[in-house]
Amino acid sequence: MSETSTQQPASVEVAAKNVRGELDVLDQLLKPEVQKSLTELVENLPKLAEMVTLMTKAYDLAQTVANDRVLIDDLKGGLEEFVKPIGEKAKGIAAAAVEASDRAHSESTTVGLFGILKMLKDPQVQSTLRFAQAFLAVMAERQNQR
């Protein structure tokens, strides 16, 4: 009998909470700003349905792509083929710069006028000077066009 008396107040309490919740909802619905918002929402339901449809399709596509191991592996392989040569070239340039720096620090000789004239005969120096001359000419042309 004590069990019945403890169950009854609990069900009354739940019912009271439900009534309070319904009254809170009704109080909210009586507010003009809530009614205005609901009216706008109802007017825009077709647009919202279209947006939800598009977002669902985009989500499905993203899920398909995310779960497609073949596509992911292909993209990964393609990216590696693109990046690997660049990385190797950058490592080569960095190694050459380090070696050149070491050589420059180990030599204590002064570069004089005759040393510069001798360097001018080097094909690498000539190629670099031609590039620098062409680059400066292009930059001057572009600056004059402005």
Rank of each mutant, 00 (worst) to 15 (best):
F131K: 05
G87P: 00
P32L: 03
T64V: 10
K121R: 02
R69A: 14
S5I: 06
L120C: 02
D27F: 06
E40W: 00
V12Y: 03
M119K: 06
R69W: 08
E13Q: 15
L45S: 08
K36Y: 08
V42K: 13
L120N: 02
P123F: 00
I93A: 14
A97G: 04
E81W: 08
L117D: 00
L79W: 10
Q7M: 11
S101T: 06
A100C: 02
S5D: 02
D60Q: 15
A134D: 09
R69I: 11
H105T: 05
S106P: 00
V98K: 15
A10Q: 13
E81N: 12
F135N: 11
V125Y: 01
M55S: 08
K36S: 06
F82K: 14
H105N: 07
L129E: 04
L45F: 07
A96C: 00
A140I: 06
A140P: 01
M1Q: 07
Q7N: 14
K47M: 06
T56V: 00
E50S: 10
F114Q: 15
K89H: 10
G92R: 05
V42P: 01
F135C: 07
E40S: 09
E80M: 08
E50D: 12
A104S: 09
S108Q: 10
L75F: 10
Q133I: 07
K91Q: 15
E99W: 10
A95F: 15
A16F: 08
G21H: 02
K57T: 15
Q145R: 14
L23N: 10
G77K: 11
L129R: 01
G112V: 03
L30T: 09
P9A: 04
T109F: 09
V25A: 12
A134I: 03
G78S: 12
I72G: 03
L113F: 13
E88C: 06
R69V: 12
T110P: 02
R20I: 03
N44E: 08
S127A: 14
E107P: 01
A94D: 11
E33A: 05
V25D: 08
A132T: 13
Q133H: 04
G78I: 07
L71Y: 11
A62C: 10
E22H: 05
P32M: 05
V25P: 01
P85M: 03
F114W: 13
D24W: 00
L30K: 09
K118I: 03
F82A: 14
N67H: 03
N67S: 14
A137D: 13
S106Q: 14
T110Y: 14
K76E: 10
E81A: 13
V34Y: 09
D122Y: 03
A100Y: 02
A100I: 05
P123L: 03
T128G: 12
A58V: 08
E99S: 13
V125I: 02
M139L: 15
V70M: 09
K31A: 00
N18A: 11
